[in-house]
């Protein structure tokens, strides 16, 4: 019983950390596709770990089956949404931010500002092409 409580605590802490990491990545990353990556990858594992932690804490009830069903729904829904949103953005004219200089070099603040300007222009319909 004590081991199950420890496992529940570890799952809850790890799930909370992963969900928080996904939110920071969603807020901080420079491009739409990298934001999609950060949101989708950590969201799936973090959600599953949080639900498993709650499941271990409740014990064996009818709610356990419903929580397993919730995990199945999230495992089907989140990749579908990610795939469809990526395809919609690619059809809608969002270009990924390509750094062609050096792979080891970090992006300067002017570059990331330029990315934001491109996406704002794409949204408001001023120009669909990314200006160089």
């Amino acid at each position: 019983m004590i081991i199950i409580g420890w496992l529940s605590d570890v799952c809850l802490l790890l799930g909370g950390f992963l969900v928080l990491t996904g939110a920071v990545g969603l807020l901080r990353l420079p491009d739409f596709f990298t934001r999609l990556h950060a949101a989708s990858v950590t969201e799936t594992l973090g959600a599953v770990l949080l639900i498993i932690g709650i499941m271990l804490d409740t014990g064996l009830m009818l709610d356990t089956a419903k929580l397993i069903l919730l995990i199945c729904v999230m495992f089907i829904a989140n990749p579908t949404i990610t795939h469809g949103l990526c395809r919609a953005a690619a059809h809608g004219g969002i270009k990924p931010a390509m750094e062609t200089k050096s792979p080891m070099q970090n992006s300067t603040p002017s570059d990331s500002k330029n990315i934001y300007e491109n996406q704002i222009q794409t949204e408001t319909g001023v120009s669909g092409k990314a200006p160089k």
């Binding site: 802490l13 928080l20 939110a23 739409f32 934001y116 996406q119």
Partner: peptide
């Protein structure tokens, strides 16, 4: 530990809402 998870989820909700308000494109 449930309190830590709740605090992490609340911070996550706030950060996600910031991105939803300042997102540059519709897809964001």
């Amino acid at each position: 530990m449930i309190a830590a998870a709740i605090v992490a989820l609340l911070i996550t909700l706030a950060l996600t809402l910031i991105r939803a308000f300042m997102g540059p494109s519709i897809y964001d």
